[in-house]
């Protein structure tokens, strides 16, 4: 990778350069596809196997899914540490915070409710 590759012309997105190198970019997509296929196949294999301790399977699936989303973000969406990308990364971090609050909070609250509430048939009996 040459010096001009690392520090592109100011204010230009990667695709805007006059001279576009096809090889490394195609290679990036191929590497991304390979990693994504590997993670997907692992997910489907883990989900149906008896080889591992069963309660660990959902956790493994979540970890594999997060890893694959990371692969997609880096190799397909091109989220990088480039200064031009700082705003995108900050927005992504904020989005992930909201996603975490919504999903984690919902599961936490609803499981608490399930534990602390009477079963539905007993509520029905009390209302009679």
């Amino acid at each position: 990778m040459s010096e001009s590759d690392l520090h592109g012309p100011a204010g230009l997105a990667p695709g805007d350069e006059e001279e576009v190198r096809i090889g490394p970019r195609v290679l990036g997509y191929v590497v991304g596809l390979g990693l994504a296929v590997l993670l997907t196949v692992t997910s489907f294999f883990i989900a149906g196997t008896d080889l591992v301790w069963q309660p660990s399977i959902p956790v493994a699936l979540v970890v594999l899914a997060i890893a694959q989303m990371g692969v997609h973000l880096v190799f397909f969406v091109h989220i990088t540490t480039d200064p031009d990308n700082t705003n995108n990364v900050m927005a992504l971090a904020f989005g992930l915070l909201i996603v975490f609050l919504v999903v984690g909070g919902s599961l936490w609250i609803m499981s608490n409710l399930n534990q602390n509430m009477l079963p539905m048939d007993q509520i029905m009996q009390m209302q009679r």
Binding site: S43, A47, L64, M69
Partner: peptide
């Protein structure tokens, strides 16, 4: 990716 992992596999 999230759908096939969470909805279908889990």
């Amino acid at each position: 990716v999230a759908i096939f992992s969470v909805v279908y596999l889990i």
